[in-house]
Design a protein around this nucleic acid. Structure first.
Lengths: 346, 346
DNA sequence: GTCGGGCTTGTAAACGATTACAAGAACGAT
DNA sequence: ATCGTTCTTGTAATCGTTTACAAGCCCGAC
């Protein structure tokens, strides 16, 4: 026997389907009607079909969260925050991994027109004209956690990574590190460019030259390890190119490294250890994102907290608000960073 | 203007809605019809509404994956594997965190009757009669990644953690460690009991006594740190209680620890470092799950690979198969473990 | 020429809910 | 007693698809 429908309940209770629906949705009904319907519902184990309900009311009560990589702990943090807000509002969360590829993202945004979700929260790491266009034209509300041009016409919640970068450099300089290297992720990504610029600006503010810059192929642990030799090589060149009077007692070609995210930082630390460089004695390491991994790594990683949890929370709130009222003009929220100092750069 | 419906397409193309539907679903149609419909579809940007489609065909093409904690890297591994299988089959994945609470799990399983997903893949860490009952009665196919009684009548894919435990103990003994402690997660969970028993059996097989056993309050990093003092204290007692002739040169109360998962192991290693115990020189540490964290931790963690990726993959395949044909009798698959040897226990 | 069979296409009935509208009941005011 | 108002309940339309069934057409075989 199949699941009972609302008609079955109505028949068993000797009332109309409309009455059953009303009782179930808490619309006014007499005491007796309510009681009667509820007994039958209980008895038959009736559960309304959300497919049918979706079709009629035009809402699925599902929201989609699209991130590049579910293995990146920063997205775990964000996902937790989003899930909390979203489920409190009675929505389910569909989590999708887009990979780093912008065409997948575009396909996803276009696909939202199918109506399986009431809104989309996306955190794109590469942005092109196609993506902006598809976001602007998307049938359902979209909120971007990240940086996207204003002409996309959507709510955005982004981090202030230049400011975060400055916090990191300030801290390193204040603790006597002036020979600072930078391990970036792919420079053709949105966070990659933002962080590169932030690093350059922050160093300029302190009248410093970069000790070395390298670019990992991805924002992952493996890419961080793989890029470490590049960084060391780049430093070799840089130290020759600049001045010869670096008086560091250690053999390290730089005394600090800032990494574009925590995974890269942890990957790099492994390679530093392999090269017999001690963290933080020889090289201080600073990550970005302040994810759970920063706390778990050894030594615990000093990391720039770019407010992922808050970004997730606020993005989710914006999305819910926009679903209620799509006529509000787009808001662009910037979340301020802070620095979590741990042992890798005390 | 709102989204075009199939009726709008039919009208614009001068054909019937049935024809449009047929073309879209690849049913036989003449060359001309196909071409004509597709042009109009293109032109109007028509996208079929999956809500309506779901209602009619009784499928949502969504699958739910329920895990206890999205922050646990073992679930990330599993999720990746599941996602791969599922999306290749044209399904979307809804990821839900149940927390460690069994009542949430029961509510989730019951809620599946609403029909927002075509199947459920659940990895419960606590199991009670209610959960078994709700699984057995669930309207949609369920596959359990983990251990659940056969009377639940569902496909299961589980790890062989006793065997895994034995691999760990064998390795430790083979490398000269005989004073082995065990850091478990909560003993009232399914993996907790299985691992406790596995540990006891494995030691018995080698005629060894446990050097210490402690139980963390949760399968998390923080709980691992918090439980470390208990473990050290327990070892103190244990070493007095057994024999005084342990000839270890180090001050460590045990020369190896097996942890019920990687997060606990990493948490413990932090505390061991704080207690000035070196890993692996003074204490070898073995984790379980062989998640990404094992590779990322420092020193890299020797870990029992319980086949999370394979479990995820096979569970997803079983679920898809059962959706196609719900009359197959339940299968119970056991995935065999292996040991990934890294520096924490070389 | 007619008939039957195979294709293609259209009409209309589902799917299972919500909800606009109408009808009936109850009740107080005149 | 009658009328109007308010409240409750039922009937039926609707959401946007898919699909069973029927009808129309073309073509070859008798």
């Amino acid at each position: 026997m199949s699941r009972p429908t609302i008609a079955a309940v109505a028949q068993a209770a000797g009332v109309s389907v409309a009455s059953v629906s009303r009782v179930l949705n808490g619309l006014p009904a007499t005491e007796e009607m309510t009681e009667r319907v509820q007994r039958v519902v209980e008895q038959l184990g009736y559960v309304p079909d959300s497919r049918a309900r979706s079709l009629k009311v035009g809402r699925t009560f599902q929201l989609t969260l699209a991130v590049a990589d579910v293995g990146n702990p920063v997205y775990v943090t964000m996902m937790r925050a989003v899930e909390e807000v979203v489920s409190a509002a009675g929505y389910r969360l569909v989590v999708t991994a887009t990979g780093a590829d912008v065409v997948d993202e575009v396909a996803l945004v276009r696909g939202m027109a199918r109506g399986y979700a009431d809104g989309l929260l996306i955190s794109p790491i590469r942005v092109d004209e196609d993506l902006v266009k598809s976001i602007r034209e998307c049938e359902v509300p979209v909120v971007v956690a990240g940086n996207v041009p204003a002409r996309a016409g959507v709510d955005t919640v982004r981090a202030n990574s230049p400011k975060g970068m400055l916090l990191a450099v300030d801290h390193l300089v204040a603790t006597g590190r002036t020979n600072i290297a930078f391990l970036n992720g792919p420079a053709d990504t949105v966070p990659g460019t933002a962080r590169a610029k932030g690093f350059a600006d922050a160093l300029r503010k302190h009248d410093l030259e970069p000790a070395a810059v390298a670019e990992a192929t991805d924002f992952t642990f493996a890419a961080g390890r793989a890029a470490a030799p590049d960084l060391l090589a780049a430093a070799g060149v840089a130290s020759v190119n600049s001045s010869g009077v670096r008086g560091s007692a250690s053999a390290a070609p730089f005394d600090a490294v800032i990494c574009a995210n925590d995974l890269l930082a942890v990957g790099l630390m492994h390679e530093l250890a392999a090269a017999e460089l001690r963290v933080p004695e020889d090289v201080a390491v600073v990550g970005m994102d302040d994810s759970e991994l920063a706390e778990q790594s050894f030594p615990p990683l000093t990391s720039v907290n770019l407010g992922s949890a808050e970004r997730g929370r606020r993005a989710a709130e914006l999305l819910l608000a926009r679903i209620e009222d799509n006529d509000r003009r787009p808001r662009r929220i910037v979340v301020q960073p802070s620095l979590s100092v741990r042992r890798s750069a005390p």
